[in-house]
Design a binder for these strands. Structure first.
Lengths: 161, 161
DNA sequence: TGGCCAACTGCGAGCTGCATGCGTTAGCGT
DNA sequence: ACGCTAACGCATGCAGCTCGCAGTTGGCCA
């Protein structure tokens, strides 16, 4: 897997480290490792998953360092985190404008391009003066597969349709 | 103010207790007190706030009872809970179809009628087969007052895209 | 090239928010 | 009134972070 690759392969790594340094921050070896794992891993990871990935090869990196690095990355706008339902927060790179559809039933996360909610965001801005923050915009519901199952019925004032 | 009122004032109380009993549940004095506090209190409360309200007058009611009562109410569809951002979950009566706009800056929660996102929900259903669950539908962003402040700028894509 | 200083790290304790097991209490149908 | 059992109170436990502290280290400036 990534074992044979050097960390410096991904050009995004240097860009991110530069962004971290831009505000008086420092590019430490630990941060380099954490960011590399973030770039190499799946699209959405929890802090715990990232910690497990990092610590598998670098057991000397503390979990709190992972959290603090993610916090720093979040502050710089490099990554975003969202609280999808009940579990821990998930982090992902802030490279595309999209929102998350989270299936309550199977936990699957569908990414939807930002254009999908453009009209909705505009409506909220015009009628309520509310500016939607796309990061953090997680919509709960049921994906197509789970909605088809006869499991649990839809509750509450289901949105027309 | 509520001190002089009897708990039985609100007709909704009996309806909710009946709903609780409908499924083999029981209408205990504790549940009566918890539901009364829920009806008398503000629109959105955390479990902790509700526990504080209840225990102010009934210190012998355990916190776990509050949680279990809220869970039972949630199961019956009487209340809904949503995770608005980082804090604890908030509970509210399931009486109107609405979604929550949560201001990241000041924490204010704006309620928006369900009709506002009907078109958006339909789009998600048609294009992605995703059925939005209105409860849990919390949109993060900045309210009009906070958006006007020169605080933090809106962030966008940062990584090399 | 060396020194300085603050940012950062690791460790670990602690905190919040909630879940759960257990023995006891008390609704509620009969 | 009786008995079944849901619900209660208490205590404890767990996940997911957060924070304080002492030691380390990166990056800047002379």
């Amino acid at each position: 897997m990534t074992g044979a690759r050097r960390d410096g392969d991904d050009p995004r790594l240097e860009a991110i480290l530069t962004a971290l340094c831009a505000d008086g921050g420092r590019a430490t070896v630990q941060r380099r490792i954490v960011v590399s794992a973030l770039l190499a891993g799946p699209r959405h990871v929890t802090a715990e998953e990232l910690a497990a990935t990092v610590q598998a090869r670098h057991p000397d990196i503390a979990t709190s360092t992972i959290y603090r690095t993610l916090e720093a990355l979040d502050r710089q706008g490099v990554v975003q985190h969202a609280h999808l339902g009940h579990g821990p927060a998930v982090y992902h790179l802030n490279d595309t404008d999209h929102l998350h559809l989270v299936c309550e039933s199977c936990g699957h996360v569908i990414e939807v391009p930002g254009s999908a909610y453009e009209a909705f965001a505009r409506l909220l801005a015009e009628d309520y003066g509310f500016r939607v923050a796309p990061h953090h915009f997680a919509v709960q519901g049921r994906c197509g597969a789970c909605a088809a199952e006869p499991g649990l019925p839809q509750r509450g004032g289901a949105v027309g349709a």
